[in-house]
Design a protein around this nucleic acid. Structure first.
Lengths: 295, 295
DNA sequence: CGTCATTACGGAATGCGTAATGATA
DNA sequence: TATCATTACGCATTCCGTAATGACG
């Protein structure tokens, strides 16, 4: 097989139609150039140039080969470009997992920021609950997740993106609404509840249970998605504990009441990624996240 | 710039994900392969493979570069193919000149034959009188012509393709037609003539003059193209000397009468080409012509 | 200890540049 | 004789293969 150098040499000679000038252009002397062309012709098995000692001409075969050689040289010169961009994280793909709740608050600005800073990185979005994100991250099916704690510190690194208040969603016109103040835990006794699934929405479940003594008799439904909860609240099936960002869901017939508690913003959202990930675009994204969240 | 060998090496390693097997596939030992990959990575400026001493994995950049490298290697392997085909005359283009008269007899079968034997050679056709063909052949604007003698033997080589009888074209119902036999030169005395141009259709002019004592007073028109002549004959402007193949023109109101002479088939058609031509497709065509016309 | 990639080293091949040769107008 | 491609030759570099080393389960 011939060499890219030979192809480049041939292109130069074919364009100059003069070994001397071509050699100059290639920063070499004529003799080695002459030999390279001869070698190329031997490899291709065809006379590419007609030298009649006064002028150099392309043969018909040479003309065809010139096109191929040029394409080849150009392709070779450009080949590393993408690889370099990908390695620097400026080009590539990021597979982002997010929970339904984040989809309505955090996700938009988050993607906006990535899109601005990494315009050539393709973003692939998947809605997954935290647990699903964890396994996807472990399996390498996801690059980064927007999820709730806790995470295994050995496997994952994370950054706190957002803390927000815990609210109580009630059907519009509910008696609690008329209190006209932040709710206390004691206000909620005996209220029928739409609760989080202790397995699929463990974070919220634990968060709520930690703050409020739940009467399990009051639990009417157990669901895993915020939107489902709120729909059930709207349908008058009970009240539910939701993050402040659930307000933007804009479901009709639901009011949101702040719940007082020991921590002002107990509901946390983290960006989380696998420490083993080798995706350069992720590394880049992490830099960006850390730079904009310096805590 | 990296080497095609390095690209090929990389493709092998990336596909095998194992230096040992890749080396085997490349018919070499591991150490040089390892070095080639390192060198490639240094040139590209990026880590393409992740070696963790138990397994080899592609990095994101390596994955992108693999695609480029594969394309490059394949393109390089195929590049000589067309050049070789062109050099052997099996691919390329032939610019063929022909006279109007040949267009109606010889040209069809001639092209048919080329098309069968050289299916991948593009045929470009131009209608030119012999003189124009000669200059086009000299200028390199034509590869081969179908023309009438004489040719400069120093510049051109030629092969006799066809000899045919000389006929007299007369308006239908002409008195000569009623003779019911081949015409003699003496039959034509005092007939008004549509004659060939001594410059543009020199071959026919000379041919006719050599055989028949032309009374220049009888010459009504001087034209260069057979079809024009016959149209004038049909219009009753006189009689004309034409090759037998003119019959197939099928002009209404014209009859063709054989003219006896010293030579039975005095009208010759040659394939003619420039000895200096370097078009391999022409060389191939000449072989074919000579093989089918062994004289 | 076995596997597999990498480094160390010696010898062969490749490839450059300078000098000489050859061919052509 | 001048120009330009090609061959001759010596030297530096590249690159292979064998052998040794290193990392990891």
């Amino acid at each position: 097989m011939f060499t890219l150098d030979q192809a480049r040499s041939f292109v130069a000679v074919a364009e100059e139609l003069h070994f001397g000038r071509a050699a100059e252009r290639l920063n070499m002397t004529q003799p080695p150039l002459s030999r390279q062309i001869q070698k190329l012709e031997r490899i291709v098995g065809v006379e590419l140039l007609e030298r009649d000692n006064r002028s150099v001409t392309l043969t018909a075969a040479g003309e065809a080969f010139l096109l191929e050689a040029r394409r080849l040289v150009i392709a070779a010169e450009r080949a590393p470009e993408n690889a370099r961009l990908i390695a620097s994280g400026q080009l590539g793909a990021l597979r982002i997992g997010f929970t339904a709740a984040t989809g309505f608050s955090m996700l938009g600005p988050f993607l906006e920021q990535i899109g601005t800073k990494l315009p050539n990185v393709h973003l692939e979005l998947t809605e997954l609950v935290t647990n699903e994100q964890i396994t996807a991250l472990i399996d390498g099916d996801l690059d980064i997740g927007l999820a709730r704690p806790p995470f295994d510190e050995n496997l994952f690194e994370s950054v706190l993106l957002l803390s927000e208040g815990l609210f109580v969603a009630v059907p519009s016109g509910h008696r609690l609404e008329s209190l006209q103040r932040d709710l206390q835990v004691s206000d909620l006794a005996d209220e029928p509840l739409v609760m989080h699934s202790p397995t699929k929405a463990r974070y919220f479940y634990d968060l709520v249970v930690r703050q409020i003594p739940i009467e399990h008799n009051n639990v009417r439904h157990t669901v895993s998605q915020i939107l489902t909860m709120i729909s059930l609240v709207a349908a008058g099936r009970g009240i539910a504990f939701v993050p402040e960002s659930a307000k933007v869901l804009g479901v009709e017939g639901v009011s949101y009441l702040r719940l007082s508690g020991p921590i002002e913003h107990p509901v946390q959202l983290h960006a989380i990624w696998n420490r083993k990930s080798r995706n350069p675009a992720l590394a880049r994204l992490i830099q960006i996240i850390k730079a904009s969240q310096p805590d």
